[in-house]
C-alpha cells in the first residue's frame, strides 16, 4: 500500500529534492522514495520546476552602469529611487522606532493644545460695558482727519478680537437697505 502524502511530508520531499536535508535524513527518505512511486513523482516535480527556472536568462548591466555608479560616488548623489527610499525609510524607521511609542503622547499633546485654545476662546474675559461702548462710539464716530488715530486703531483691533462686540454688532443694521447688494445693470 502506498503511503499517502500530506503537506508536511511534501515539505520533506521538497527539502530532499533541493538537497536541504542532512545526510542521515536524506538517506532514510531516499530509501522510502525508491520504494514509493507517489513520493518519487513529487520529488521529480520539484526538480522539474527547478530545471524550468533555468530558462530565465539574467539581465546584464548597461554599459554606462559603472560610470554612473562612480559619478554617484564622486558627488555623493543618490538616485531618485534611492532618495525616495531613504526618505520613506527614514519615516518608516522613525515610526517603527521611537515614533510609534511617542504617538499617544503626541496625540495627547495635540488634544491638550486644542482644548486650551477652545477653552480660552470660550472663557475669554469680557470687556467692561463702558469700554465696549467706547469702542463702538469710536467706530461710529471716527476722529476727524484723513486717518484714524493710534487710539482708535488699537480700539478697533481689540474690537475685532472681542467676541462680545462681534456678537452684538449693530452697525450693519444702520446701513441703508439694499447696501451691499449688487447693483442691477
Amino acid at each position: 500500500m502506498k503511503p499517502k502524502i500530506r503537506c508536511a511530508e511534501r515539505e520533506q520531499l521538497f527539502a530532499y529534492a533541493c538537497g536541504m536535508l542532512n545526510p542521515r535524513e536524506a538517506g532514510e527518505l531516499g530509501t522510502h522514495i525508491r520504494q514509493c512511486e507517489a513520493c518519487l513523482r513529487v520529488v521529480e516535480s520539484y526538480r522539474w520546476v527547478d530545471e524550468v527556472l533555468d530558462a530565465w536568462r539574467p539581465e546584464e548591466p548597461s554599459p554606462s552602469f559603472d560610470s554612473r555608479v562612480q559619478a554617484a560616488i564622486a558627488t555623493g548623489a543618490t538616485t531618485s529611487a534611492g532618495l525616495w527610499a531613504r526618505l520613506k525609510g527614514g519615516l518608516r524607521d522613525y515610526w517603527w522606532g521611537s515614533g510609534r511609542r511617542l504617538a499617544p503622547v503626541m496625540v495627547a499633546m495635540a488634544v491638550a493644545v486644542v482644548s486650551v485654545v477652545v477653552l480660552r476662546e470660550r472663557h475669554a474675559p469680557l470687556r467692561p460695558p463702558g469700554q465696549t461702548q467706547q469702542v463702538v462710539r469710536t467706530i461710529k464716530q471716527p476722529s476727524s482727519g484723513a486717518g484714524l488715530s493710534q487710539a482708535s486703531i488699537e480700539a478697533s483691533s481689540s474690537a475685532v478680537d472681542d467676541y462680545d462686540i462681534l456678537a452684538n454688532f449693530e452697525l450693519l443694521s444702520e446701513l441703508p437697505k439694499g447696501h451691499g447688494k449688487p447693483e442691477d445693470n
Binding site: 530565465w56 539574467p58 554617484a72 531618485s80
Partner: peptide
C-alpha cells in the same frame, strides 16, 4: 534586481544605490 522588480531601469537605479550605500 531585474528579476526582483521586473524593470531594468529601476533595477539599475537600485543597484547604483546599493553600491553607493
Amino acid at each position: 534586481l531585474c528579476r526582483m522588480v521586473s524593470d531594468r531601469s529601476l533595477a539599475e537605479d537600485l543597484a547604483q544605490e546599493v553600491f553607493l550605500r
